[in-house]
Nucleic acid binder design. Structure first.
Lengths: 212, 212, 212, 212
DNA sequence: CATGAATGAGCCTTCATTCAT
DNA sequence: TATGAATGAAGGCTCATTCAT
């Protein structure tokens, strides 16, 4: 068996990933309740019954989709946390471009939309997403900011709010993309958004002479 | 029963508004598909059939909920647009506190969550929301910023992105509230967020001596 | 409302009973698993959805069917227990005819078939049926027999087995009716069976001179 | 793997019997509809697909199970029929113990339960079971009884009902075992039941002096 | 022969919508 | 107007059956 050409014949080991991938697309488009298992299955190229060989219920598929999207992001958070030392400006410039790129090329935006939309129906998913991602990321950024404040580098102020300010435009831009681009909204360039945003935050919005 | 007594019964003229209000709460909590008309009716204090005296379909109720939430916001946008003249700093400081207050005391956050979550299923709602609110607000702010740039008050840069930067923390904070506070997240004080954010944007994050 | 003519217009109060009655017929014919809710609903003259206005699940309907069949039988058992005094022969002659008549004119046979067939899948139903009917009936009969034995009226022997001997032909005859008459078996006359059975039990099968 | 060693593998010739045996257990426990082919296959130690190498459909397996249970019983009936001559008491005493022993040590009780429970869905099985077993057994006993009546040994009366009376306690006891023992019912000793029953039938229930 | 992944028809259950009162 | 019992289409899930290996 499996002589030498593992080419054609679908390999069952890939099925769950294929299904999760298809489910991500459908859930992101329709939300949990309006997504039909038929659609997910068809998009995954399998029959409806096949989904149940790998997942217990539709909710299970949903959880797998969200869960799968958490791991890579935790890596981002880790990277940010690890980059602590050095001037904050360098950290932000380096990290923001990286994060923007990842968000751009990843279905993460769709997952974010799902989590926001279904948080009320899946509290445990909201909790996991918060505890493992949102809270971690805000915390890591806040720590870095506090360190910079301690070094006299950054102005006084609530570090958690600073962290929120830092990440917010990226999140809004990606939600804007997911929500309004399909109905004709002018896209935002995530990289450009983050670049300009970091510059603005660091140096202020106003011209030198215009400071109040 | 209740023969003829002119008790303090609710006037029937309020019914549609009561239903929309109840529907807002249920839709915000569950999303469109998972919201049951029974729940909406019960919360509105009427029978299921009564809902159909005022609305054609469940989608109609949803549209009414979103539509109703647009009007007051358009007013905000108008206010911002009308405040054009004068230094940008004054405009932002004045408007941001106002907007933060409104968002704090209004179910608008829930509606935003709904719109994000159901955009895929109700493109025309996403379109209305975008065309009448998002686009208008971004446009008004961008115009104000461009004016300030023309006056040499604001640094060069993409005015639409500047507008995004301005509003993003508020939106993220409110989505954070809607999504993660029910599962234990530490709340953000919207007013504080906007106050600190405007300060940071105007003057920069860094201490005087720390500019790169 | 309900002015004076409660004639036409189906009264909702009767619905549950109508559904249980229809369900009894379908379950008795097909068993639990093979019975389709569509069939039950149609036979009850309602839509499939209407069943769910009165019962949570199909299992609930099943439980209601069995539960409803228990009550009247408990009455039989009570009657038997109350008839204790007097010669056993009188008791048996009186009760057996009564019981045979009830079993003849009641869907109890079908329910018995259901209970036997589904006991493995619904242990709690088997338990209720046993505890409230089988055990009670056997116990009541055994008590009466023991009393007769104490009076020197009945031969020594296991009173519970005597009780089983007494009732068994009726049960087998009714299961025979439910199981084999539809495929052409010659019916047993339940009354005749019980009459002859009691006579035989009391006086023996053999002719006077043939006793061994 | 498993190179060429002629281990003590089960011979394939036994497979069908093993499957039927496993199926008997599962069908007896769950009934036809609720029995899953997966369970049957697993209990038989083969794959689900293997079942289809030997049987066309699930119904086929069921038919095989019931069919297999008929043969040995027909033998019993034949034995009874062959034992005609001599005093009826001897016949009954001899046969009843034999039958009780067979029923005790055989899954026949489970099959009986299955036949009763599924008769409505498998009329042809009910018919076969009736024609080859029930009818034959009743007939053979009736013939023996009629012979005894002709010899002046047995009282007048419906011979078919006498036959029913003879066998009923055994059947009820075995159904009682299958149905209620799993939920805690006190067991009947089949041998004791038949012994006491035959004595009672032959000599009557009442003490010598108590005859009415 | 044997396997077990895959299929898809079928059924229970939900819920938006209707309508007799 | 208002009610809520009734409807029936839709969809999640199961499982007998098939078939490529």
């Amino acid at each position: 068996m499996d002589a030498g050409a593992p080419k054609f014949r679908r390999r069952k080991a890939d099925r769950p990933a294929e299904i999760v991938s298809a489910a991500l697309a459908v859930f992101a488009e329709k939300g949990f309740a309006a997504a039909k298992l038929d659609d997910i299955a068809r998009r995954a190229g399998v029959s409806k019954g096949a989904v149940y060989l790998y997942f217990e219920t539709k909710e299970d598929v949903f959880r797998a989709v969200v869960g799968q999207a958490i791991a890579p992001n935790v890596a981002i958070v880790k990277a940010m946390a690890a980059a602590h030392p050095g001037p904050l400006a360098d950290l932000l410039r380096g990290v923001s471009a990286h994060v923007a790129r990842i968000v751009s090329m990843t279905p993460l935006g769709g997952v974010l939309k799902m989590v926001v939309g279904e948080a009320g129906n899946f509290p445990e998913i909201a909790r996991v997403w918060h505890d493992e991602l949102v809270s971690q990321a805000l915390g890591a950024m806040a720590v870095a900011i506090e360190a910079a404040q301690a070094r006299g580098e950054v102005k006084p102020g609530d570090s958690r709010i600073y962290a929120l300010q830092l990440i917010a435009p990226l999140l809004v831009a990606v939600l804007h993309r997911e929500t309004f681009e399909p109905v004709g909204a002018t896209p935002f360039d995530l990289q450009a958004v983050m670049a300009q945003h970091i510059d603005t935050l660091l140096c202020g919005l106003l011209m030198e002479g215009a400071r109040t």
